[in-house]
Structures are given as structure tokens and as C-alpha cells.
Amino acid sequence: MKIDKNTTLKIAKLSRIKIKDDEVDELSTQLSSIVSWVEQLNEVNTDNVEPLSNVSMTKLPLRKDIENIKDNSKEVLLNAPDKLENYFAVPKVVE
């Protein structure tokens, strides 16, 4: 499938990555070539094949639902680009 300019802009928006106008054409060409290349999977008959999402050989374990009240917010906030008191700070979203 060819990925046109509008599709590139749409998936860039979904990905929250700003793309400049002069980059759209080259990117669309690259994405199209990758998508066309992976489309060779259409040659494979996958009727009645179960999708494989987890190759882990072990059964996913269950654990007890125990509250963990360890407060490490100070440590975690150390990496915040912007913070206010004990919170992450972001640009204002409501006037």
C-alpha cells in the first residue's frame, strides 16, 4: 500500500511527532517502501493459524493483590523536566 502525504501526516499526529512540510514527501516514500516490503506476508496462507503474541514458555503468574504504600515520589520527581510541589507540571490546558 502506498502511504500518501495525508496518511503520513495522520500517523504523525497519532504518534505525537511534529513533521515539517518539507519532510513529508521523503518520509511518505520511505514509509511506503517499508510497508510494501512487509506486504510480502500476504503470500503466506495463515488460515486457521493462531496469532503468537507471547513466546514465554511459562504460564503468566498471578500475585496477591497487596497494597504497596512505599512513597518514592521524591526520587521519581527528580527526573521531571518541570514540577510543582509534589506534582509533574505541564502547560496550562484550561483557561
Partner: peptide, 10 residues
């Protein structure tokens, strides 16, 4: 589709 082919590879 890719997950199904992954199964065939496994």
C-alpha cells in the same frame, strides 16, 4: 497477520 506468520516461524 504478522503474529500469525510468527506462529508459523515458531
Amino acid at each position: 497477520k504478522a503474529q500469525k506468520v510468527r506462529k508459523l516461524i515458531a
